[in-house]
Simulated scan of single mutants.
Amino acid sequence: MTRRPVVKINLDASGEPRRGPDTLAAEEPLEIRVRKAPLAVTMRTPGQDIDLAMGFLLTEGVIGDAGDVVTAQLCAGTDTPNTYNVVDVVLGADVPPPVTDPSRNFYTTSSCGVCGKASIDAVRTRSRFDISGDPLRVPATTLADLPDRLRAAQHTFDRTGGLHAAGLFTADGELLVLREDVGRHNAVDKVIGWALREGRLPLTGHLLLVSGRASFELTQKAWMAGIPLLAAVSAPSTLAADLAEEAGMTLVGFLRGRGMNVYTAPERVTVRDAHIGLPESASTVS
């Protein structure tokens, strides 16, 4: 975080401009190298960079588990002064090198991790985990409480107002880990990287809550980690819903207040101890 002088205007008060400090969320590039060769650059909030790199490599299909990585270390870059914005990863000798396809552009912004990739085929990565039969069951009342629990743990957001969050929960609503970042995909990769390094994959019986919308890439990342339920406080995209249906993942959107929309695999959400079933179009659970 960085303090910066600003001019503040409040039209509900005097309306007179006044000078004062404001706290901004940090955004810096992180280069991920594999076997000394640059693979990806992402704009992220510094912190948990090893988890971010590990989560990225897993969700992009470069590695299958933590055992594929010999070492992962934060290194000094070429900046002056050195900013340590490079993670260098050494893979095991039996791990195939990342595919370098010109149609697959690994430069990512803080808003969209798949920008620049040429087609849906280029970003669709098959998961090692079959989540369609995951027995997770979550009461709708538990789901409804999760956004407040996520928000209460967003300490950096309290100071900056400018970060996305991703939280990994148990079926009974216990928050296991939360990560914040200027990029929603980075926050998810940090959560998954943590779980990978903790030996928790696949994340059977867990759910992931994100503070923004549910995109195709976040759905893909959840599938790659074996997460059977993805919830978002905002809307999903059509491709997110299509991919969730293909994976057998429960996708919940507009999780706000006491309401939510369940778009796919609704049997994992229970209302008054009964499983729900939906028609082909999404319905609202409250």
Rank of each mutant, 00 (worst) to 15 (best):
M1E: 06
R3H: 03
P5K: 06
N10C: 00
S14E: 08
R19S: 07
G20K: 00
P21Y: 02
T23K: 01
T23A: 05
E27A: 11
I32T: 01
V34Y: 03
L39E: 05
L39Y: 01
L39K: 03
A40T: 07
R44G: 00
G47C: 07
Q48K: 09
D49V: 08
I50V: 14
A53T: 11
F56Q: 01
G61W: 12
G61Q: 11
D65M: 06
V69A: 11
A72R: 05
Q73K: 13
Q73L: 04
G77K: 02
T78M: 11
T83F: 02
V87N: 12
V89L: 14
V90H: 07
V90F: 10
G92I: 07
A93T: 13
V95L: 05
V95N: 10
V95Y: 03
P96L: 00
S103R: 09
F106H: 15
Y107L: 14
G113W: 06
V114H: 01
C115S: 15
K117R: 15
A118M: 12
S119L: 07
A122P: 12
V123P: 10
R124Q: 13
R126A: 15
D130R: 02
P135V: 09
P139W: 10
P139D: 10
T142F: 11
T142A: 10
D145F: 10
L146A: 06
P147K: 02
A152D: 14
H155W: 14
T156S: 12
T160E: 06
L168C: 13
D172W: 11
G173R: 06
G173Y: 10
L175A: 14
L175N: 10
L178M: 14
R179L: 06
E180A: 12
H185G: 10
A187D: 02
V188M: 07
V188G: 07
D189W: 14
I192Y: 11
G193K: 10
G193V: 10
A195G: 13
E198A: 14
G199C: 01
R200H: 12
L201T: 08
L203V: 08
L209S: 07
F216K: 07
L218E: 09
T219D: 08
G226F: 08
P228H: 04
P228E: 00
L229F: 03
A231S: 02
A231K: 00
A231R: 07
A232K: 03
A232W: 08
P236F: 00
L239F: 01
A241P: 00
D242N: 06
E245Q: 15
E246P: 01
G248W: 01
V252M: 05
G253V: 02
R256Q: 13
R258L: 03
N261M: 05
Y263M: 08
T264D: 06
E267N: 04
V269H: 07
R272V: 08
I276H: 04
I276M: 05
P279Q: 09
E280D: 11
S281F: 12
S281I: 09
A282F: 14
A282V: 14
V285W: 05
